[in-house]
């Protein structure tokens, strides 16, 4: 049973924000409004990060996804013609429904199995919050420690550089 406390109420609100925002993105026929719904959804995700005792990730979620990527998306929307009244409709309803149901089923399986266990035994401690939550300082130490994540840290930098170069090449293609 789910206990009714501040945490579960907060989770419920955030889940509604996340899923409702997601629905808004999919169902809206106006691309810009869709982008705004996306921000609502991402904001809900940030809240869930907080509930999972990962405030750093929550702040990153807001800073990067809402503050930067969402803005980039609105720019991309502006680059699209007739963004406010899309005429085309998706016609293959049946195929769409089948794919959606299958996807939903697999995702459900993926989330429920680890909790309930394959053989029916349930791991009760899943909902218990972790005792030792890593601080940002520990994260910083781990990022540059030779035995931990220094290589991924540098590779991330390389990846970002590659992403930027790629983006510039693609965006400026028409001018050369």
């Amino acid at each position: 049973m789910i206990e009714i406390n501040a945490q579960s109420i907060a989770f419920a609100i955030l889940a509604v924000l996340t899923l409702g925002g997601g629905l808004g993105v999919v169902l809206n026929r106006n691309l810009f409004r869709g982008a705004i719904w996306l921000m609502v959804s991402l904001f809900g995700v940030a809240g869930i990060f907080v509930l999972l005792s990962a405030p750093f990730l929550a702040a990153v979620q807001v800073l990067v996804y809402i503050g930067a990527i969402a803005i980039l998306i609105t720019f991309a929307v502006m680059l699209t013609r007739s963004m406010t009244n899309l005429g085309e409709r998706f016609v293959r309803r049946t195929a769409g429904i089948v794919v959606a149901v299958l996807l939903f089923f697999f995702i459900l399986l993926g989330t429920i199995l680890p909790v309930w266990g394959v053989d029916g035994t349930r791991y009760d401690d899943v909902s218990a919050p972790a005792e030792n939550v890593a601080t940002t300082r520990e994260l910083g130490v781990a990022l540059v420690d030779g035995n931990q994540f220094v290589l991924p840290f540098e590779v991330a930098s390389l990846l970002l550089t590659a992403a930027m170069i790629g983006a510039i090449v693609i965006a400026r293609e028409d001018e050369e």
């Binding site: 680059l79 940002t136 300082r137 510039i168």
Partner: peptide, 29 residues
């Protein structure tokens, strides 16, 4: 449709934004 230049600034900013996120824990530690 508007000037693509705005989009390029957005892209460059995004890369730096992600970079800054990595540097915060680095600075703290």
């Amino acid at each position: 449709q508007f000037k693509i230049q705005y989009y390029l600034y957005g892209l460059v900013f995004l890369i730096f934004d992600v970079e800054m996120v990595f540097l915060f824990p680095w600075a703290v530690a």
